[in-house]
Design a protein around this nucleic acid. Structure first.
Lengths: 193, 193
DNA sequence: CTATTTATTGACTGATTGTTCCATAACAAA
DNA sequence: TTTGTTATGGAACAATCAGTCAATAAATAG
């Protein structure tokens, strides 16, 4: 019909994710975004709306991918404890790979808390989804006797979610991969039979 | 000698801490700070230097107070596990009290990572101090047989530090006090003999 | 009292913020 | 080729940013 755009929408969005993760919403200026995304000013507003809309789409996109990868790793292994271990270790490895070590999800929570409904909708959804997956898998493990019989599945799920946050913060603060793996090792002790 | 200042420096700084914790460095504008601190523009620059210097002093002040309270709670109890439990529970209670539920320390790490040496100096120092205290107490507990004999004290200390971060992020995301207490309960299982 | 020192107030700066307008360019369908 | 539609690039917008200047006010010391 008309002139096709000269850039790839998805790669531009991916680059925006990195900028927002590294500097937050307030810390990311439009010039910074434009330079990183390698598009012109008008292209940003035509394609993504405004800065806030771009941020929300970046947050949604990041949340889906990040959550999906971690949870699927958990179900890869038949053994429950081993599956959880692989999920946590993979999560930790992702956290230290790359240069910025920043997580858009964590950054969104610390920057906005529960004050912005549009942001909270995304962060709550990913938390809920993760909790349900953890809880289900933990319940299986408890029933099968692979995990401690007196474990509270819901509390343990919330503990694992908090552990993920702790890993991300530690990674952002400069912790080594070995340190993160050590944390995972200790955390798993809380679940073992 | 001359005209005395009309405001209390410490309370003004305390109010600045709340603003920076809630909105981060980039998200806190000078008008926001002035209104919260209830001082005039020139008073801020005369008394605290510029925005960045104020931020660093706020971060230092917050770190000292927050770390001190948590670690002293740990040494209040003779029993090691109980002392750690009280430290974590007190930390969790602090995290849900107040309105903003924000932590300046966590916010500083997620916002700047390791990119700003002045900020990293503070966050690294508080992490190091906390790790040393945890490790020492954990070693005592292992020796006395109150904690698991095969526990790696250093890794467990890093695990506890990550748990603190996880608790703060969960609280900032809206978790209830009961949820945080549940997380603490599961976390302690990783240490028990 | 006067003199000196410091705090406060408000106006003001240049730079940067997010966003829009408009003219031009590039493509597809007729 | 014309026409319709969309993308791009640059200039421009009002608003806000962090920070400064100068005038006034309030205190003490002599």
């Amino acid at each position: 019909m008309a002139r096709p755009r000269e850039f790839d929408r998805d790669t531009a969005l991916q680059r925006a994710i990195e900028v927002f993760a590294a500097h937050g919403f307030e810390g990311s200026s439009t010039p910074m975004l434009l330079e990183a995304m390698k598009i012109g000013r008008q292209s940003l507003y035509d394609t993504f709306g405004d800065k806030r809309t771009l941020y929300l789409e970046a947050l949604r996109r990041y949340s889906e991918e990040s959550t999906g990868a971690t949870l699927s790793a958990m179900f890869d292994s038949h053994a429950v404890l081993q599956g959880i271990e692989q999920a946590l270790l993979g999560f930790a490895d992702d956290a230290v790979s790359g240069t910025s070590r920043a997580c858009l999800g964590i950054h969104a929570v610390t920057e906005f808390g529960t004050s912005e409904p549009d942001v909270t909708a995304v962060t709550d959804a990913v938390a809920h989804r993760t909790l349900l997956a953890f809880e289900s898998r933990l319940r299986d493990g408890i029933e099968r006797g692979e995990l401690a019989g007196d474990l509270d599945a819901m509390a343990a799920a919330q503990f694992l979610l908090a552990t993920l946050s702790g890993l991300k913060v530690a990674a952002r603060g400069g912790a080594s991969q070995a340190t993160l793996h050590g944390i995972v090792g200790v955390a798993l002790r809380a679940l073992a039979a």
